[in-house]
């Protein structure tokens, strides 16, 4: 006659099964929601799709036939990985971008646009209309991209070497998972 399984063993079995289930479901969840993970930080599929859509809109605005979608996807994924690495370095080294810096850069960009288009004054309405027409983005999305740009400039200054070279080196050692 078999001995009855003790309570302790039962608890252990249930715990192991629960852990395995968690790992399995978590992996599935990650794969379902993330396109890429960079050093454990996920980039959602939604983010990648948004970037692809912006690229397609750009080519449309330029009356240019878009490259094939896989090339665009690879380019925007690479760019998003770059951004993630830049963000992680900045966080580690307390490199930040203030709202004042972003607003300053925004005013500069509007000024350049107005100058090229013979628009007098500092109004940003024509600029925002053009940005929206080119990428279907609004001001807050544009400011977010400016912030990222300033952060990249700062990280480049901080690492003391060309940003692309630094990024290539980082990618050799970073834990990057593309799903």
């Amino acid at each position: 006659m078999n001995k009855p399984i003790s309570t302790t063993v039962t608890i252990i079995i249930i715990a192991v099964v629960a852990i395995l289930a968690f790992i399995f479901l978590n992996k599935k969840f990650v794969k379902q929601n993330y396109a890429v993970q960079v050093n454990g930080v996920g980039i959602t599929k939604s983010t990648v799709n948004t970037a692809i859509a912006q690229q397609l809109e750009f080519y449309k605005s330029q009356n240019q036939q878009a490259p094939n979608i896989s090339t665009i996807q690879e380019s925007v994924t690479n760019a998003l990985i770059d951004n993630a690495l830049v963000n992680q370095y900045a966080a580690k080294h307390n490199i930040t971008v203030s709202n004042a810096e972003v607003n300053n850069r925004y005013e500069e960009a509007v000024g350049v646009f107005n100058s090229h288009n013979n628009i007098k004054g500092a109004s940003d309405s024509a600029f925002l209309a053009r940005i929206n027409q080119m990428y279907e983005i609004d001001k807050s999305e544009y400011l977010a991209s400016l912030k990222m740009g300033i952060l990249k400039d700062k990280v480049q200054a901080s690492v003391g070497e060309p940003l692309t070279k630094w990024l290539q080196e980082q990618k050799k050692t970073a834990d990057i998972k593309i799903y």
Binding site: P67, T71, E74, S75, V76, N78, A79, Q156, T164
Partner: peptide, 9 residues
């Protein structure tokens, strides 16, 4: 192939 380049310096 690519669609973008990131400038360095």
């Amino acid at each position: 192939s690519t669609t973008q380049y990131t400038l360095s310096s």
